[in-house]
């Protein structure tokens, strides 16, 4: 339960941000939370189950497009549209996952990349429906108890969603299913010998990560009041994969911090130069060559200390990595 307490604690601390940040920075942090959350969900797939994907932006973008199209083309209420967006992404993930998990490694990477490009290609080329390169502008935000058109108001909605989803992910990760993901990563032969349907576990990880991406894709569309092809791009998938790597596999908090940090870095750099891909590339190379364990590997001392301290107190807990 420690991790859940940290999430709630961090949420309370972040709640003071509107009082200390300017409008610009508050907006930036809102987006940072969204991308951090996206990366945290991806950690279940990439970190826990070790299935490197270069296509999960597809589920982020599909949900955004689904929502935006439902509102602007069909006049559907934004809340229901949000549900449609998430269902669209989730539905596509449910259909695609059983196929994708039949292959591994390089072929999995290629297939996810190809799948992402299919969605990107549709959004780019099917101009009459999706707006093509121009995307879909003027997507209205939904009505809520408080005003969501206000930066502070939207920040608080985002914070609530992020806390809620992070709690769900955290509990999920420590559940039997979450542990089975680690088992699949360790040895899938052993897992099937123990009675686990490995393919269905891999598919589950894929779908759950897609659903998390979808929720944040909708949130991102509402924040920007816009959805564009960038939300489906392989560059975004690559950025999210990097977030998990830099953050550290399977730590959940590491990818969250890295996902947020990368977005802030990107926004600040893009403002002045066109050097974002260079920075992204260098971060990849540096993190692989010099920091293979990711950010979370920098704090094993703290973790170790906590385990030692809790040993005497918590009798029923034998987890070595009590994440």
């Amino acid at each position: 339960m420690r991790r859940e307490k940290i999430i709630i604690g961090a949420g309370i601390v972040l709640a003071v941000l509107p009082f200390v940040l300017t409008e610009y920075w508050l907006g930036l942090f809102t987006q940072a939370l969204i991308f951090g959350g996206f990366a945290m969900g991806l950690d279940l797939l990439v970190g826990y189950t070790r299935m490197p994907t270069l296509g999960h932006a597809a589920f982020f973008g599909l949900a955004g497009y689904g929502t935006a199209l439902a509102i602007t083309r069909f006049g559907i209420n934004p809340w229901i549209a949000a549900g449609i967006g998430v269902l669209l992404s989730g539905g596509v993930a449910v259909a695609f996952a059983p196929l994708a998990v039949r292959v591994r490694g390089l072929t999995f990477l290629t297939i996810t990349l190809a799948f992402g490009q299919v969605t990107w290609g549709l959004a780019t080329r099917w101009t009459s429906f999706t707006g093509g390169e121009n995307g879909i502008p003027s997507v209205p935000r939904p009505d809520f108890i408080w005003d969501l058109n206000d930066r502070t108001g939207f920040f608080y909605l985002t914070l609530i969603v992020v806390i809620f989803v992070s709690l769900l992910i955290s509990i999920f990760a420590s559940s039997a299913v979450g542990m089975s993901f680690m088992g699949v990563r360790g040895s899938d032969t052993r897992m099937s010998a123990l009675g686990y349907n490995v393919q269905s576990r891999r598919a589950t990880a894929f779908i759950v990560a897609a659903l998390v991406a979808a929720v944040y894709g909708v949130l991102s569309t509402f924040f920007n009041k816009f959805v564009g092809t960038g939300s489906l791009s392989w560059q975004l998938s690559a950025q999210m994969l990097l977030a998990v790597v830099v953050g550290g596999f399977g730590s959940l908090w590491g990818p969250f911090v890295a996902g947020s940090g990368l977005h802030i870095l990107k926004t600040l750099l893009i403002g002045s130069t066109q050097r974002w891909p260079m920075v992204l590339g260098l971060l990849y190379v540096i993190s692989v060559v010099f920091l293979p364990g990711g950010l979370s590997s920098l704090v094993p001392t703290i973790k170790q200390r906590m385990i030692h301290r809790s040993k005497g107190k918590e009798h029923a807990r034998y987890g070595t990595n009590s994440k």
Partner: peptide, 19 residues
């Protein structure tokens, strides 16, 4: 590991592209 290869060469791809 295959995983690190993918990440490294992907990083190089970005660096070359931007260069």
């Amino acid at each position: 590991s295959r995983f690190n290869q993918v990440l490294l060469t992907l990083g190089l791809a970005f660096i070359f592209n931007n260069s």
